[in-house]
Design a protein around this nucleic acid. Structure first.
Length: 335
DNA sequence: CGCTTGGA
DNA sequence: TCCAAGCGG
């Protein structure tokens, strides 16, 4: 998944409390898949409503988002649009992994190995159009803006961060850096000890620092990605992050570097173009408003069988003042 | 994910 | 009072 840059970068720790008052563009699919993988029963079954429709993504989104809002963090969720044609083989590979995981899940259940079953089940997660629509409806009910990306959500989030509409982009994938985000937040979805008012510790990567540390340019970072492989190209067999950095660090230029690695430059030109100039849109408006209790009830209680009192409890903790900076001065609820 | 519970 | 386990959906 994504580009393997983990071994090259040194993230700083950041507490959730330090995000107070900041706008964050969250890679929605990335986070929803985390919820689908995590929020399951012991045997691996996801949460479902009485009709058998999956609700794990809604559970995660509801509790995590309300937790952000309670702490004065302003999330906006960016949803993937049509994937690039370059991603086709990656998507096929993922589909195959899911099929195999499904078989392994069944097997583990038959063998009575619950731990393995849960692990395999996590890899079978799929997001349907209906699940995405439910997630968007829930966000609207919470007064949280969402953005429809024309293609890659990470690219859109990166662009929003670059133009200053949000402070950072949040995703687990490092592709966000290749798409030019000035700041990448990791670990926003997996709340370690977020309950009982604890302060979640996350990772922050600041692109200028990353580039300075590596001694390369943004374009050369994309080159590193192309060498080790991304969702949009295979990379070179035998070249991992370390060798790729050694090669790119020689500053031979795009073509010479690729040729010395045995890659035909014309074959990855489209990948370079995708990372440096991805499809994005300006067609969005970031406005955080008060939650709509009736709509929350509609989406969660009526449509999906959530317990009324639990939804009510979440609602009671949400700030009632619209916290959109610039349009709101009274932030009593955020004290 | 986050809350509730119950045993130490 | 703390925390792991179980629940919710």
């Amino acid at each position: 998944m994504g580009v393997k840059l983990r071994d090259l970068v040194h993230p700083a720790n950041l507490r959730l409390s330090e995000l107070k008052g900041k706008r964050i563009a969250v890679d929605a699919y990335n986070m929803l898949y985390q919820f689908l993988a995590t929020i399951r029963q012991a045997d691996g079954q996801p949460f479902t409503d009485p009709e058998g429709r999956v609700t794990s993504h809604l559970v995660g989104l509801l509790y995590r988002t309300s937790s952000f809002l309670e702490r004065g963090v302003l999330p906006t969720y960016v949803f993937d649009g049509k994937p690039s044609d370059l991603k086709a083989s990656t998507l096929r590979a993922r589909s195959l992994v899911k099929e195999r995981a499904q078989a392994a899940w069944d097997e583990a259940l038959a063998a009575g190995d619950l731990e393995l079953a849960r692990k395999k089940a996590a890899q079978t997660s799929r997001l349907t159009r209906e699940m995405v629509a439910d997630a968007k409806a829930l966000l609207e009910s919470l007064g949280v803006p969402w953005v429809q990306a024309p293609s890659e959500g990470e690219a859109q989030a990166a662009w929003m961060a670059r133009r200053g509409d949000v402070w950072a982009a949040a995703s687990e994938d490092y592709d966000t850096l290749l798409f030019g985000a000035p700041r990448l937040l990791r670990g926003l979805g997996a709340a370690r000890g977020a309950s009982r008012g604890e302060d979640t510790v996350m990772e922050l990567l600041e692109t200028p620092k990353v580039l300075e540390e590596l001694g390369i340019s943004q374009e050369e970072l994309v080159l590193v990605g192309v060498l080790v492989g991304t969702d949009f190209n295979e990379g070179v067999h035998g070249i991992g992050p370390k060798k790729a950095m050694k090669l790119v660090g020689q500053h031979l230029g795009w073509e010479a570097t690729l040729q010395s690695a045995g890659l035909e430059p014309s074959g990855v030109e489209a990948v370079r173009e995708l990372f440096l100039h991805p499809p994005t849109t300006e067609d969005y408006r970031l406005r955080w408003t008060a939650p709509d209790p009736a709509k929350m009830r509609e989406v969660l209680v009526v449509a999906h069988g959530f317990a009324e009192d639990r939804v009510q409890k979440v609602l009671s903790r949400l700030p009632t003042a619209a916290p959109t900076p610039g349009t709101q001065t009274s932030l009593e609820a955020f004290g």
